[in-house]
Design a protein around this nucleic acid. Structure first.
Lengths: 219, 219
DNA sequence: TAGATTGTTAATCGATTAACAATC
DNA sequence: TAGATTGTTAATCGATTAACAATC
């Protein structure tokens, strides 16, 4: 194969998925699941594009990154699309997730049903409050921070959500990284630093409202 | 001024802020606030870039979109940066926000302190549950959906967060739009359709975990 | 002045879109 | 077959980066 200019490769020599495409893949999955639930057997790039406010060509190009998905003349079969995207994203099997920090937000996360439906399960929660340790919240056992390593190992935990106060977010992240967690969903409104081999996604709710205000004043 | 190729304009003929820049502006604000709190008077593009994993040139170019911010030879004064970005984003004064849907997530949002610190205030909550209507949660009065129009008008509410079940998210959004809300923060894991003059930002927590899993398997 | 850092230009890079042959 | 839609190429568009004169 000729080394196309637009094709990037990672350290292993595998083609990398462009950042922009990664973000949209979740959207395609969500729409395909909805279409399927509504009884649609097939969809197509134009329809998916309309639903998500994207260009049809972009939808096709995005999906074509991962091989031959579609059926020329027909479109995409919703069921196939769902399976394929889940496989690509690694959510075709369940991920066990740890929660660190059981405040308002932490509790809401434990109660939220949406995670299970997409293949994530909170199997352990951690906090410093002695009154919580040893109890269960929404069926999820609460442990002390000391128990992180053992519990994470037992449950093969690779992902952690941290919903702790900003001041301690970095030190909690350090601990979580140290015990071998590979990905962190950070709800504290601070940038946390981790080694290159660990991924972080930050969810800053105030920042989302800020962005919304900005788009409104910029209209 | 010559019509530069990279300069875009909106319907009013004002220069538009590139999407990518908008997203980063919130990050610059957050870092500048932290630096200020830590006692730093000034910072510079290289430092901000390092903190956020960005190129210094990008930081300078982003900020330069909004006029002369910096001091050649010195850098950026944190206090000035904070004020200026808040003014640009429209968060130099407080926004009153409505919450629709008081489930787990809704309650967590009402209790979350981070919003107030960035200039947002939940002044009214709405739900269909008769047991909640007329009560207060975290000091925020709970109204029935019928009262949306009146209350929104009284409090000059322009933004709403909707944390309702997916099945009703679109119809709730329709109501919220109908009474004149200009921006919606949608926590339901569905795409909602609104007229062009209304902005929507979606926060799908399961999708964030999905993205995290994806980056981990793609490492 | 010498050193530091901005704002801005030009070059590079990556992402989106239009167009269309290939396919069903 | 005629119609529909994919996957892919080439063209366009926008975003990032390097380099440096201007500024303090």
């Amino acid at each position: 194969m000729t080394d196309k200019k637009t094709q990037l490769f990672n350290a292993d020599g595998d083609p990398t998925v462009p950042r922009a495409v990664m973000g949209r893949l979740s959207l395609y999955l969500r729409e395909a699941q909805h279409l399927l639930r509504d009884g649609n057997e097939t969809t197509n790039s134009t329809e998916l594009g309309k639903l998500l406010g994207l260009n049809g060509a972009q939808v096709r190009k995005d999906l074509a990154h991962f091989g031959q998905f579609g059926h020329p003349g027909i479109g995409y079969k919703c069921q196939e699309l769902v399976f394929a995207i889940k496989r690509i994203m690694g959510t075709d099997s369940t991920w066990n997730v740890a929660l660190v920090g059981i405040g308002n937000l932490g509790r809401a996360l434990l109660r939220y049903k949406g995670f299970n439906q997409q293949g994530f399960r909170f199997v352990a929660a951690f906090d410093v409050d002695p009154k919580l340790i040893g109890t269960r919240i929404e069926g999820v056992p609460v442990y002390s921070m000391d128990q992180l390593r053992t519990v994470a190992w037992e449950h093969k935990i690779r992902l952690a959500a941290i919903a702790v106060p900003s001041q301690v977010a970095q030190s909690i992240a350090d601990v979580v990284v140290e015990i071998g967690v590979e990905g962190i969903l950070n709800f504290a409104p601070v940038t946390i630093n981790v080694p290159d081999n660990v991924r972080v996604i930050g969810v800053d709710l105030a920042m989302e409202l800020e962005q919304l205000a900005f788009t409104v004043v910029n209209r």
